[in-house]
Design a protein around this nucleic acid. Structure first.
Lengths: 137, 137
DNA sequence: TTATTAATCTATTAAATCGATAGGGTAGTT
DNA sequence: AACTACCCTATCGATTTAATAGATTAATAA
């Protein structure tokens, strides 16, 4: 299941991408518009900033803004930052690989085999979808 | 992330599917072979039995066995029984649909749009993969 | 027939982790 | 002075992953 963190994060990013100009938007503005808990959203936007997706400005007129154009932000980045691994199992993860304790041979593992297929397909979608695509229509 | 419950369940099913004959296999046998906690596996096999995937036999020489041929067990069934919804978000789930609290309009939601694509692709894989496919090579 | 053993079944509980959120205070900007 | 991002901590609840203890059933050996 997708965590609310990721869900809210994507919604907030979409909101920012839809802005006409690139002036900072206050957390409270996004929070109200998208019905997201203010404090929760705060921490989400912070991690997006720390990971190079967003910039921020303090004080009056401050807020968050996109650092790149929406078409240059692939969903793979967003998902990996907010949700973590895209794979359903660590042993098929490209960026978060981990060996299974119980599995003596990965290539013989039925779960492994199945989950590689799922990962490949999901990855393809996230790679080919940018933040700009989510704003269309 | 895939729960260990589902992971262990699939491994156990694969083990049963690989059996020559269809005589019952004791939980302990599967537990040892696949490195799965005995008691945990016990509860997993129980839910698979209650959901019509497995049959069981008590007493000496008892154990679990597949009710259908492996090629007639699609991964959609297994996943839905063990893991629950295949969708990453309830609002795009076919079998476990639930409306989002925060979303006034699903069709306008960027997350919804993205997750429908993921669901469709994942579903296709699970539909086209049977337990028999996981046993090959 | 009886006792023993092997196995599933059932229920309860516990530990640990994670998700989601709330509160309060700090620091930089206008 | 007002505003706003930033940071730290604590909490509450749910879920996952078991561990524990026993009850039930069936085959087999005596």
């Amino acid at each position: 299941m997708l965590s609310k963190k990721t869900k809210y994060g994507i919604k907030a990013l979409t909101f920012l991408a839809k802005q006409e100009d690139k002036t900072p938007v206050a957390i409270a503005t996004i929070s109200k518009s998208e019905n997201i808990s203010l404090k929760f959203l705060e921490s989400i936007l912070l991690t997006l900033r720390k990971n190079g997706i967003l910039g921020s400005k303090k004080g009056k007129g401050g807020g968050y803004y996109l650092l790149n154009s929406p078409s240059n932000i692939p969903m793979t980045s967003v998902m990996r930052i907010l949700e973590g691994p895209i794979s359903m199992v660590p042993c098929v993860s490209l960026n978060f690989y981990e060996k299974c304790d119980d599995c003596p041979d990965e290539n013989a593992c039925s779960v492994h085999k199945l989950m590689i297929q799922v990962r490949d397909n999901t990855l393809k979608i996230f790679k080919n979808t940018s933040l700009a695509d989510l704003c269309k229509d």
